[in-house]
Amino acid sequence: MSGARGGHLRADGVVRRIGDRAVLDGVTLAPRPGETVGLLGPNGSGKSTLLRLLAGVLGPTAGTVTFDGDPLPSVGRRAVARRVAVVQQESQTQTEMSVRDVVGLGRIPHRRAWTPVTPDDRRAVDTALERTGLADRAGQSWHTLSGGERQRVQIARALAQEPSELLLDEPTNHLDIQYQLDLLELAVSLPVTTVIALHDLNLAAMYCDRLVVLRDGRAVAEGTPGQVLTPALIRDVYGVRAEVTGEGERPVVRFLRRGDPDV
């Protein structure tokens, strides 16, 4: 994607242990500026943990996560928060907030505590609302929105941070198909580098430039969707049979029932 801001977030040989178990075991991820990288793998494969390491929320047991070549701890939490935005699967709040208020939370890393909103803050929020098609919803209560609309607001909040990197953890879960497609169209249109954890292989093939597949905490495949999404890999990683069709780098996956013949 042209127009992506500077910045380079990467993980090199990261390990994350919980007790004796390695949740991640020697994973390297180096997104290219402006590309959309999809993280695939079954539940428990380490996708969310890798995103948390990239965001600086967790520290690796071994290996390093760097931003522009500097280890995240030396960059500082506030500086990282300005440059790296995170969108979780679902966000909840009991506080009554408007859409504009929620989007405005993205400006917190840019202000000192208790300082007033600046013209730059207002501009960033207005731009994020316009970019995500929410300008006409700015005064609406967060609690009146549908699940897909709330996820769109969370992307607007992330965009208001003016980040160079966007991390999304299965943002399409529990959304209707229309909202899934709308949200991913929006995500890949943004002038940022995006790493997104997904369950749906066809959505990953449609929207990601490159895929990294995790299994049991290890990266077992990396490449374009056309290179990665093969019947053999789907069988080995997910334990199911599938037919993969389509020309070029945007394949289509059709899962086979147990009684269906191999193709």
Rank of each mutant, 00 (worst) to 15 (best):
32 R>L: 02
127 T>A: 13
67 F>L: 12
148 G>L: 12
79 A>Q: 10
140 Q>D: 15
213 V>F: 10
64 T>L: 09
127 T>P: 02
183 L>A: 07
36 T>S: 08
100 R>W: 12
191 P>M: 08
229 L>Y: 11
238 Y>E: 01
34 G>C: 00
54 L>D: 02
31 P>S: 09
250 R>K: 06
220 V>D: 13
105 L>I: 02
215 R>F: 11
261 P>L: 04
77 R>P: 00
37 V>K: 04
68 D>V: 01
2 S>R: 14
184 L>H: 10
18 I>D: 15
250 R>E: 10
148 G>I: 11
245 T>Y: 03
193 T>R: 05
165 E>C: 05
184 L>V: 04
86 V>F: 10
42 P>K: 13
154 Q>G: 08
230 T>Y: 11
76 G>I: 03
81 A>Q: 02
81 A>E: 06
176 D>Q: 08
157 R>Q: 01
50 L>E: 00
86 V>I: 02
203 L>A: 05
9 L>N: 06
159 L>A: 09
133 G>E: 04
234 I>H: 02
221 A>P: 00
19 G>D: 07
173 N>Y: 00
202 N>H: 09
188 V>M: 03
30 A>Y: 01
29 L>Y: 04
27 V>D: 03
107 R>H: 09
149 E>K: 07
151 Q>I: 02
126 D>M: 07
17 R>H: 10
35 E>C: 02
170 E>L: 03
45 S>A: 13
259 G>R: 14
148 G>H: 13
192 V>S: 06
256 L>S: 05
141 S>L: 14
191 P>E: 11
262 D>Q: 10
253 V>Y: 05
111 R>P: 04
161 Q>S: 05
113 A>M: 15
82 R>D: 08
162 E>F: 15
238 Y>T: 00
28 T>Y: 09
224 T>P: 01
64 T>C: 12
47 K>D: 04
57 V>A: 13
9 L>R: 07
175 L>I: 01
260 D>G: 11
15 V>M: 07
212 V>E: 12
231 P>D: 12
237 V>I: 03
197 A>E: 07
160 A>Q: 01
202 N>D: 15
42 P>V: 15
50 L>S: 01
139 G>M: 05
111 R>F: 14
44 G>A: 09
146 S>K: 13
93 T>I: 00
4 A>G: 10
118 T>H: 06
183 L>I: 05
231 P>L: 05
103 V>E: 09
20 D>G: 14
173 N>A: 12
